[in-house]
């Protein structure tokens, strides 16, 4: 039996153990976290160097005016802690974020949470409208030849119009009709999130091949039965992939919608007022808040995706 036991060692569990040991027995969480931490560290180093380099002219200028001699040590000490730096240092942004989130009452305009909520509500409304419209149009396109030929070119054309050009017009047109606040921003967000969902769903609804369609035909299934029992389930993985793109696009659309016409609420307005008054720390805080918001939205959709696909038996 020696050959048999040797086989077990080569193909069986002991080999996996050996493989784990050769990599030093590092615990798996740390092994995946380490590369991420290294990248983060590198970004921090580069960021601090950039902050010193970019803020140096102002510090030197100040020193020259005050007729003081500036040592390299002074330069490195002063550049990352200016009030209105060209590039704020990471710890300044972190403090700005912390102050905006935890240091203010959430109901006031000084709170980043309040601004984030203004942006989020418009994003979610636009995302819902855009995704629903995308799904409905995709269903029409896959079931109606006239729609297939006519809708897609318009959808593509709509996306070639720069959003920065269209956003102020949408805001102005809505304002002239007396509609302000959430709705105009949601329309811009919907405009951006419609396209990825439309393209993804058209692709998804057309995935079933002859192998899957022939049984349906042999049972004389109606178009509605084929849609609910074959096309829609086949499209689910595509739907979730496009929803992730769409939700990020909706957030961008909302922020762009908050830039023009002197809006005072939302992360976009925060970005704009920051740049008016040279509050770079405020700009960067709002920027990171927006990035965090986008990350949370994508994570939520990923979670819904995982649960749905597992329930459908598609996740293994």
């Amino acid at each position: 039996m020696p050959s048999r036991s040797a086989k077990v060692c080569v193909w069986g569990i002991p080999t996996t153990d050996a493989a784990a040991q050769t990599s030093g027995g590092v615990n798996p969480t740390l092994r995946t976290a380490l590369p991420i931490l290294m990248v983060l560290l590198a970004i921090m180093v580069i960021w601090y160097l950039a902050a010193v380099w970019m803020n140096a002219p102002w510090v030197r200028d100040q020193a020259a005016r005050a007729d003081t001699v500036l040592t390299t040590g002074d330069l490195i000490r002063q550049t990352p802690s200016l009030d209105r730096p060209v590039l704020p240092a990471p710890h300044q942004v972190a403090m700005g974020l912390w102050d905006g989130i935890a240091g203010q009452k959430v109901t006031t305009k000084r709170s980043l949470v309040w601004h984030a909520w203004v942006t989020l509500s418009a994003t979610l409304a636009g995302f819902a409208i855009g995704s629903l419209a995308g799904i409905l149009l995709a269903v029409g396109i896959t079931h109606n030849r006239a729609m297939d030929l006519s809708v897609m070119p318009w959808a593509v054309a709509s996306q070639t119009v720069p959003i920065l050009a269209i956003a102020p017009m949408v805001i102005v047109v809505f304002a002239s009709m007396g509609v302000t606040g959430l709705m105009p921003k949601a329309v811009i967000a919907a405009w951006l999130s419609l396209f990825p969902v439309l393209v993804g769903m058209v692709k998804g609804l057309r995935t079933p091949d002859a192998m899957q369609l022939d049984p349906m035909r042999s049972w004389s299934a109606s178009a509605a039965q084929v849609f609910w029992r074959l096309r829609l389930p086949s499209a689910m993985p595509y739907l979730f992939a496009s929803l992730k793109v769409a939700v990020a696009a909706a957030l961008v659309g909302t922020i762009v919608g908050e830039l023009p016409a002197g809006a005072t609420a939302g992360l976009g307005a925060r970005l704009l007022s920051g740049s008016y008054y040279g509050q770079t720390i405020q700009i960067w805080s709002a920027l990171f808040m927006a990035a965090g918001l986008a990350a949370v939205l994508v994570v939520v959709i990923t979670a819904v995706e995982r649960v749905t696909l597992r329930r459908m038996g598609l996740a293994r």
Partner: peptide, 30 residues
């Protein structure tokens, strides 16, 4: 339409999001 025949195809063509019972019940649902 009168359900005169059952057809077995070259590939099983089972739908991956349905269990075996669900797949077999599919023509019955329709």
């Amino acid at each position: 339409r009168a359900r005169a025949y059952g057809y077995v195809f070259q590939a099983p063509g089972l739908y991956p999001w349905r269990t075996i019972s669900g797949n077999i019940a599919l023509p019955l649902e329709i």
